[in-house]
């Protein structure tokens, strides 16, 4: 079985969208999907952040308003919805980085329900080693 492993380091919506789109496409194709959320990427999975995140990459800041307006007008699914849909149709796991988790004093219940487990860097690497495609976003 084909497996894709994505490290999500970024917490801005313009970078989280491709995480959602690629995860749902991969799940539809029958790939196994593993998402390892770390640093700002993990912060984006917090309940108080996930759906109201309006951040985009600093260098494209001036485009933020337009981007969110278009997304709303075209009724595009959010990156969270895309990952949720991917989980409904396929084998998709979201792992939270243990180091980030401890560093920011997070609790599992602070994170949205699509996060499966908290794992360390060692376990992540062992899992990613088996992947056919690895991405850092």
């Amino acid at each position: 079985m084909t497996k894709i492993s994505i490290i999500v380091f970024s917490g801005t919506v313009d970078k989280l969208m491709p995480v959602g789109v690629l995860s749902s496409a991969a799940a539809a194709l029958g790939y196994e999907v593993e998402i390892f959320a770390t640093f700002w990427g993990l912060m984006a999975f917090r309940k108080d952040m996930a759906e109201k995140n309006m951040k985009i990459s600093k260098e494209y800041e001036e485009m933020a308003e337009m981007m969110f307006k278009i997304m709303k007008e075209k009724n595009m699914p959010s990156w969270v919805d895309l990952i949720r849909q991917a989980k409904e149709i396929g084998n998709v796991k979201v792992y939270a980085c243990a180091q980030t988790f401890d560093m920011f004093g997070m609790k599992k219940e602070d994170l949205i329900d699509i996060v499966d487990e908290v794992v360390g860097a060692g376990e992540y690497l062992e899992r990613a080693k088996e992947a056919d495609i690895t991405l850092f976003i």
Partner: peptide
């Protein structure tokens, strides 16, 4: 009106 990869996902389903 559904965006990439929506139509593909619906077909596969």
């Amino acid at each position: 009106g559904s965006f990439c990869p929506g139509p593909l996902m619906e077909l596969i389903k």
